[in-house]
């Protein structure tokens, strides 16, 4: 079978951070970590080409992923391997996006990276195999990757036991029993004491430790934050309407209100008619100022923080949360009211 390997500029031997802007290129056969992969896969399979790209270029240049994918596609691979990317964020994202794009076109692809790599969330329907955290763990990481690739090439499945991480796509299948009979089976199982039986796994969420309560509100600086996408009317910083990759801050130090016409919501997930009629429906500055003047709160933070919560990836949302908390701590705010849409 024909295999194409995708790696970054560092593992291709082009250079380190100084070469992160290198555009995509292809080389015959296996390069760097691909050599060990080729050896482990044996004579039945061949790493026919290696495609590499600088991490900055791959993750920020417009059209870079398409370019990489077309170089790979030209090799007519039976399967594509990307990484391992370890905990390197940009490399992981590049591997994930390349693999996701290929799988969406019907080309099987496997990416390898560490569980914590943000790329895990972006691999679409591609298989992601666990790697170590750092390049020092290349050996065992390649061993695991090669084993998973061999299984896939043999038409077998790759599961948790094989080091699979990330999302596993759910596909429609026809089964013997109609849903109604399965529902009655399930209700009888529940009555029989089985609390775990289900056809749809419940979503798992990170445990959140609640912050300690505020003791004296009249001495506390309070911040207003929102994922309701309220921005100045011109949207000067180009906040996205969906799938946010960033958050923004706007000064409200010298304002008592957010008039219609000066602010609007660019949220793409609901009708913004009401928000635009009165932006306080998203960021309640008018009332917050009143509470500040009355001395109910010690003060109102000089800025409100904003992003858009609409199809935002969990990884990005987690990052925004961490950054917001750090930012507010630095600025002295000790409580935040998050208006959620």
């Amino acid at each position: 079978m024909r295999i194409v390997h995708y790696i970054n500029q560092f593992f291709a031997g082009v250079g380190g951070e100084d070469a992160a802007g290198t555009p995509p290129s292809r080389t015959d056969g296996a390069v760097g970590p691909g050599r060990r992969l080729a050896t482990l896969l044996g004579d039945d399979h061949e790493v026919v080409a290696t495609v590499s790209c600088g991490d900055d270029h791959a993750t920020s240049a417009a059209g870079a992923i398409d370019e990489i994918v077309s170089l790979i596609r030209a090799e007519q691979p039976d399967l594509v391997v990307a990484g391992p990317a370890f905990t390197s964020g940009r490399y992981g994202l590049a591997c994930a996006r390349v693999a996701a794009a290929l799988v969406a076109e019907g080309v099987p692809a496997v990416a390898a990276m560490h569980d914590e790599n943000p790329g895990v969330e972006e691999a679409g329907a591609a298989v992601v195999v666990r790697s170590g955290a750092v390049a020092r763990e290349m050996g065992p990481s390649i061993d695991r990757l090669a084993a998973a690739v061999a299984r896939l090439l043999a038409g077998e499945t790759v599961g948790e036991a094989d080091g699979r991480i990330g999302k596993v796509p759910r596909r429609n299948v026809l089964v013997e029993k109609p849903a109604a009979e399965r529902a009655v089976d399930l209700v009888l199982a529940r009555l029989g004491g089985d609390r775990s039986a289900t056809e749809v796994p419940l979503p798992r969420f990170d445990p959140v430790t609640p912050a300690a309560p505020v003791d004296d509100l009249s001495k506390t600086m309070v911040a207003l934050v929102t994922e309701g996408a309220l921005v100045p009317d011109e949207n000067p910083d180009r906040l996205e309407s969906a799938r946010a990759t960033k958050w923004l801050r706007y000064r409200i130090q010298d304002r008592d209100s957010l008039p219609a016409g000066e602010f609007r919501s660019v949220h793409g997930g609901f009708s913004t008619v009401w928000a635009n009629e009165d932006p306080h429906r998203i960021v309640p500055l008018d009332v917050a100022r009143e509470l500040e003047r009355e001395g109910l709160i010690g003060g109102l933070h000089d800025e409100y923080l904003v992003t858009v919560g609409n199809g935002t990836s969990v990884a990005d949302a987690r990052r925004f949360g961490v950054e917001w908390a750090a930012d507010l701590r630095r600025s002295g705010a000790r409580a935040a009211i998050l208006t959620a849409t």
Partner: peptide
């Protein structure tokens, strides 16, 4: 797991 939640009137106008 949001620790403290105040229910509002509707998604498009959390503070109105």
């Amino acid at each position: 797991g949001a620790p403290r939640i105040v229910p509002t009137k509707g998604i498009p106008y959390p503070a109105g």
